[in-house]
């Protein structure tokens, strides 16, 4: 229970960081996605209900601060969480380098899905902008993951 409470508090802290501090730490105009890190960690370390609830909260928080059509992240984050839980049953995602790779792939696939969904909803993202943003975002998120994971482990006592 303490773990979940702390994790949710940490998630709110990450939300604040995502909208206030991270935009100033952009790399080639792209910032890492702390929400996706939360989703991946929650999917791997919590039970199904909690992981889905946390992913849903992450999606809602991201959509609240975002200008995209409401519901995009609220919908996709729990879906990704569910898929990750399925994958984690087949593959051992425990070591930090493996988790980094998982974060990279998740962020990249999430970018692809977002682009398709945004395109369907009428927002056209130029292909080169998509490639630049998705690759840098995935690498950046994977690169900061060990540090963020350390913080999550300490505070949420995983």
């Amino acid at each position: 229970m303490i773990r979940k409470k702390n994790f949710i508090l940490l998630m709110f802290l990450f939300a604040l960081l995502q909208v206030s501090l991270l935009p100033y730490l952009r790399l080639y105009g792209t910032k890492p996605d702390l929400f996706l890190i939360c989703v991946v960690v929650a999917s791997l370390y919590f039970d199904v209900e909690s992981a889905l609830l946390i992913s849903l909260l992450c999606g809602i928080l991201k959509d609240i601060f975002s200008v995209n059509v409401f519901g995009l992240n609220t919908f996709f984050m729990p879906v990704f969480s569910f898929l990750l839980m399925k994958v984690s049953r087949k593959l051992a995602l425990e070591d930090t380098p493996v988790l980094c790779a998982a974060i990279f792939l998740t962020t990249f696939f999430y970018a692809i899905v977002s682009r398709i969904a945004l395109g369907y909803l009428g927002t056209v993202v130029p292909f080169w902008a998509f490639l630049r943003i998705s690759l840098i975002e995935s690498l950046y998120t994977a690169a900061i993951f060990p540090l963020v994971f350390l913080l999550i482990k300490k505070i949420a006592r995983l």
Binding site: K62, F65, N68
Partner: peptide, 8 residues
């Protein structure tokens, strides 16, 4: 604050 997403 700023948009948390990279797509907008």
């Amino acid at each position: 604050g700023r948009d948390p997403s990279n797509w907008s």
